[in-house]
């Protein structure tokens, strides 16, 4: 944690270990990328062929032109963003209440949010399907987003309670004494402070929704079908379209990584030094 470190020290103590971890994280992904630019004939070979016999983007072209993958990506984006909005809009107030108020049933309600997530979804899915059908939400964005909120809300509430609790309550009191209303305090003091927590929670909800398959498979039809379900169409009964699948995987991981590249700055900007001294 030394604040003054030489370039060499940084390289040996930080950058090399980071490279090792990245190698572990990226090796299978790199293999996937490599597969996606190989001609199909290179795929099932013994011994393994590492480099493509010729570089090809035919799988990507096919994916975009001959299947509905581009639309599915868009659907996924709508669903994931919707899940983030619904998740945060409901759980920020809830988590604030859990963190800052003491009221009857507090611990029980907080625990019950966790209990919800303990039932294996595979068993809930059929009753849920029946319910969604009654509400007329099958094959709508709202239906899938609400489906995803079953895991995003409990998670967000719990994570955010931890982050709220990490903010000293003296800050609220100081602001209140200064004459700020509760909502003003939340907006001007608390929210900026828990920004890293908010961003992290949003990322969690986004990624989980982006990758979710079972709810999406059951609740979406052709109209709002997201990528995970579309991807499953490449795995037929008798063939696996490796080229399409790996190209699809690359395209799925890309937006999330770019998104994270953009928001990760927020992960440091949260607690500006000085704020805590207050």
């Amino acid at each position: 944690m030394s604040l003054r470190r030489s370039a060499l020290q940084t390289f040996v103590q930080v950058e090399v270990p980071v490279l090792l971890i990245l190698a572990f994280a990226l090796a299978p992904f790199a293999w996937m990328l490599l597969t996606s630019v190989k001609p199909t004939a290179d795929l099932a070979l013994f011994p393994v062929r590492y480099l493509p016999s010729r570089l090809t983007f035919e799988h990507y072209a096919m994916l975009i032109e001959r299947t509905s993958f581009a639309v599915n990506l868009l659907n996924s984006l709508v669903i994931a963003c919707g899940a983030v909005l619904l998740g945060l809009a409901t759980s920020v107030p809830a988590a604030y209440a859990f963190s800052r108020f003491r009221f009857a049933g507090r611990r029980q309600i907080l625990t019950s949010f966790l209990v919800i997530n303990m039932f294996p979804i595979v068993l809930l899915i059929i009753p849920l399907f029946v319910l969604m059908r009654k509400l007329g939400l099958i094959d709508t964005f709202v239906g899938v987003i609400i489906g995803h909120s079953t895991f995003s809300i409990p998670f967000s509430v719990w994570m955010l309670v931890s982050y709220f609790n990490a903010i000293p309550r003296e800050l609220d009191e100081a602001a209140t004494i200064d004459g700020a209303s509760r909502l003003q305090t939340i907006r001007r003091v608390i929210l900026p402070l828990i920004m890293p927590g908010l961003v992290t929670t949003a990322i969690y909800v986004f990624i989980t929704s982006w990758n979710e398959y079972l709810f999406a498979m059951m609740l979406s039809g052709q109209t709002v079908r997201p990528v995970t379900v579309a991807l499953q169409l490449f795995i037929g009964e008798f063939t696996v379209q490796w080229g399409l699948l790996t190209a699809g995987g690359a395209l799925i991981a890309l937006p999330v990584s770019i998104l994270f590249l953009l928001v990760q700055r927020r992960l440091v900007a949260g607690l500006t030094s000085g704020a805590v001294k207050a």
Partner: peptide, 17 residues
Amino acid sequence: GLARALVIIPWALPSVI
């Protein structure tokens, strides 16, 4: 920043892949 964005990739892939 780049390292943070790259490390997230395994998590950003659907389970079926």
